[in-house]
């Protein structure tokens, strides 16, 4: 009885360890594909400019958004590097300066990205508008 229990524990340990190790290896080698978007720094460090559709994410730089007719240009920054993004179409409600954004599209060169889709990334802060105003006054 006790021996069987020990064998079952050993079996479970081996099973769990092997799964964790293989998962770790898989995720490690797929790092590039597990991330939902690349940061401007990642773009800068790319060895070659990818032709296929990619996503770039970061903060919309303060006072960088310019809209003429239906074309919108802005700068995505991760506070180390930045990249110019241009897009035509409508943007989600949460899109604004100093907020997170993920742009899906094609890289033209290391500093220019042509987006075909814009997703807003919201942060983990939740508060009523009055509190935000009070915080803003500080």
């Amino acid at each position: 009885m006790v021996k069987k229990v020990k064998l079952r524990i050993a079996f479970l340990l081996a099973l769990i360890l092997s799964i964790i190790l293989s998962l770790f290896l898989i995720l490690q080698s797929l790092e590039k594909d597990v991330v939902f978007f690349l940061s401007p720094t990642d773009i800068k460090n790319l060895e070659e400019i990818e032709k296929k559709k990619i996503r770039v994410g970061g903060m919309v730089k303060d006072k960088s958004v310019s809209i003429n007719s239906n074309k919108i240009n802005f700068i995505v920054t991760d506070f180390k590097n930045e990249i110019n993004v241009s897009y035509s179409g409508s943007v989600p409600n949460l899109f604004s300066e100093n907020k997170g954004v993920v742009a899906e599209g094609f890289l033209q060169d290391r500093s220019y990205f042509k987006a075909v889709k814009i997703l807003a990334k919201h942060d983990e802060n939740y508060m009523p508008p009055e509190v935000k105003e009070a915080l803003g006054d500080k």
Binding site: F36, F37, G57, G100, L119, H122, E124, N125, Y126, P128
Partner: peptide, 30 residues
């Protein structure tokens, strides 16, 4: 993996608001 996915990788989903250590970023009225 679910719990830490937002810390380990860039995700569209935002980070945790309630942390085991540190302040929560949800206002008390919520």
């Amino acid at each position: 993996i679910i719990k830490f996915s937002v810390n380990w990788w860039n995700t569209l989903h935002q980070g945790p608001s309630l942390k085991i250590m540190g302040d929560t970023t949800i206002h008390s009225s919520m």
